[in-house]
């Protein structure tokens, strides 16, 4: 026996598996499929639900073709932002980060200005760098990962670092500017950008949550 709801679920999960469409895009296509089936049944009372479903499914197109059409419509905004974040983070590894008055004056160095990669090896700083280092493999492997916590952690680290930097510049002025080198600002900004990218990505992946029910008849047939 033809079970409409089961067929729709099966169609949706097949489309999900065989395409790169987000849950929101799937929601919209599912609504279209249902509306089309309703219309086909209205137009031809003799039509069996299974035939109406087959027509609607065929006219929506194959998963690969749908995926291609959506991809042609443009890349989501979070991708260039994430690429920018990774570029800034990479740049921060090569740039001087901050002046450290660590070495004894007798060694002849007044200040040591390490580059980012020199600090990356520091075990004490690893917890700060770890979310950024783990982010790409995590979202690569788990396409459905919402990444809310990851976005929050990256955001807190980035915003705190930027905030501390700005506060130091306000308090100390040019001394702070000479201590906090370009690598510091690039490193902080990369975390803020990565966090924003993950938030945008999460919005796109999350299934739609409508706010209220439509007033009856406001938009015609529903």
């Amino acid at each position: 026996m033809f079970e409409f709801e089961n067929e729709v679920r099966r169609w949706r999960s097949a489309l999900d598996r065989r395409s790169s469409l987000s849950p929101r895009e799937l929601d919209e296509l599912e609504d279209h499929l249902r509306a089309r089936v309703d219309l086909e049944l209205e137009l031809d009372a003799a039509l069996a639900p299974t035939e109406a479903f087959a027509i609607a499914r065929r006219d929506l197109g194959e998963p690969k073709a749908l995926s291609r059409e959506f991809a042609r419509a443009g890349r989501p905004r979070w991708k260039p932002l994430l690429a920018g974040a990774l570029a800034l983070y990479s740049a921060s590894l090569l740039l001087p980060v901050l002046r450290l008055e660590l070495l004894p004056a007798s060694w002849g160095f007044e200040a040591w200005v390490p580059r980012g990669y020199e600090l990356l090896a520091d075990i004490g700083l690893l917890p700060l760098n770890l979310p950024m280092l783990l982010m790409l493999p995590l979202i690569w492997r788990k396409r459905r990962l919402k990444g809310t916590w990851l976005a929050a952690i990256l955001g807190i680290i980035g915003a705190s670092a930027l905030g501390l930097g700005v506060a130091a510049v306000i308090d100390i002025g040019s001394d702070a500017l000479s201590s906090l080198r370009p690598g510091y600002w690039a490193w902080s900004a990369s975390f803020v950008c990565a966090s924003t990218a993950l938030w945008l990505r999460r919005r796109g992946w999350a299934s739609a949550r409508p706010k209220k029910t439509l007033a009856q008849g406001r938009h015609g047939r529903v």
Binding site: E28, L60, G61, F70, K211, K212
Partner: peptide
């Protein structure tokens, strides 16, 4: 049928239309 939605999403991304779920 499948062509319309990418068009709508592109227009929404470009800020020409705005969508809301209900």
């Amino acid at each position: 049928d499948g062509m319309l939605y990418p068009v709508l999403h592109r227009l929404e991304r470009d800020g020409l239309i705005k969508g809301r779920w209900q």
